[in-house]
């Protein structure tokens, strides 16, 4: 643990301990997000801090109480009984969290969030412009949909929603019992029990076209699973790997989607993909749970992507090519371009 992390914590810890005489080590650890061992190490650093040569004014901690009872009594800390102003990092991390929350919380909570943001900004004094310098934008749902989700969660009601998953063509009617709204990687998700699929599912808020609260009480479905991490695809049972050659202009795929492995493309890869070798080409391995998703990815990428393990994904590559041919034929039949449309 470097001093850059420890000293700011010590400066927050002293006024906290002055305010809470007899605080328990375990509670302090939770409140500061560190281990109980780290709290003990912090106390050993604080013990006897002060001005050299003035022993009566050194910070005193009853270490016997800490060691035997896990309880903290600290004295002689008058110089530090008020907290240091927020550091830029402390303020910004909190502001970013509040910004993210503001875009997923129900409309009723927005007032309290804005008040809190204003108070943090005021506390920054001369650095009050800082909260404008780091900004998160969360892909979320319209206020109307968020209000509906909020009401359904609060009243524990089932909702009926129109949802557009990214791997199927048509939007779907889904009946779900909502649990919570989470943000991951800049997107908001509804965590809910899906009555049609009989299981817990995540739904992207920006794909919820519409939602209504029903009069049906939400059912008991046990504990919601903890939020899946970045590699959510690998958690799916029926996922199969695809080895995808990507030209340099399709490298973004490796940044945007969860990939199992990434490497530079070799001459053999280029030959297998039927292209000229280029040093910036990539080969990625991704797990595919929905074949339709792969078909649409191939259509999206055009000549910049090729499936290397082609035998496994023959149906999907063939389907993509057929859809492309049909689309080209349709454009030749109908509606020759009729000029630019101005915004």
């Amino acid at each position: 643990m470097s001093s850059l992390q420890q000293v700011p914590r010590l400066l927050a810890l002293v006024p906290y301990l002055v305010r809470h005489p007899g605080a328990r080590v375990a509670d302090v650890a939770v409140d500061f997000g560190v281990s109980p061992e780290q709290v003990r190490r912090d106390l050993h650093v604080l013990w006897y801090c002060g001005v050299s040569g003035m022993p009566d004014d050194l910070i005193d901690i009853n270490m016997d109480q800490v060691d035997q009872h896990g309880v903290i009594h600290l004295s002689n800390a008058d110089f530090l009984s008020r907290p240091l102003v927020l550091s830029p990092t402390e303020a910004l991390t909190l502001v970013v969290g509040l910004q993210a929350l503001r875009q997923v919380a129900g409309p009723d909570a927005v007032g309290a969030i804005d008040q809190a943001l204003a108070k943090v900004r005021a506390a920054l004094g001369t650095r009050s412009e800082l909260p404008d310098q780091v900004v998160v934008e969360v892909r979320s749902a319209a206020d109307r949909v968020r209000a509906t989700l909020d009401e359904a969660i609060a009243r524990q009601r089932r909702i009926e929603m129109e949802y557009q998953p990214d791997h199927v063509l048509e939007s779907q009617r889904r009946n779900v019992d909502p649990h919570s709204v989470a943000v991951r990687d800049g997107y908001a998700y509804l965590e809910a029990y899906d009555l049609d699929r009989q299981g817990w599912r995540s739904f992207r808020l920006d794909r919820i076209v519409d939602a209504v609260v029903t009069s049906i009480p939400a059912g008991q479905h046990g504990a919601a699973p903890s939020a899946p991490g970045r590699h959510w695809l690998s958690a799916l049972d029926d996922a199969d790997p695809v080895d995808l050659w990507l030209a340099a202009d399709a490298r973004w795929v490796a940044e945007k989607y969860p990939v199992e492995a990434t490497r530079a493309a070799t001459a053999e890869d280029a030959a297998s993909a039927g292209v000229e070798p280029h040093p910036d080409d990539l080969v990625v391995t991704m797990l595919i749970a929905e074949p339709e998703w792969l078909t649409r990815l191939l259509l999206r990428l055009g000549q910049s992507a090729r499936v290397l393990n082609a035998d496994r994904w023959r149906a999907e590559t063939t389907e993509a090519a057929e859809r492309a041919r049909r689309a080209i034929a349709m454009h030749q039949r109908v509606g020759e371009a009729s000029g630019r449309v101005e915004a």
Binding site: L13, G33, V34, P83, L86, T93, V120
Partner: peptide
């Protein structure tokens, strides 16, 4: 994340 500690400090200061 490492920055979790910074937010925790901010919250503890503001909670006083």
């Amino acid at each position: 994340h490492d920055l979790a500690g910074s937010t925790a400090n901010a919250v503890r200061k503001l909670s006083l």
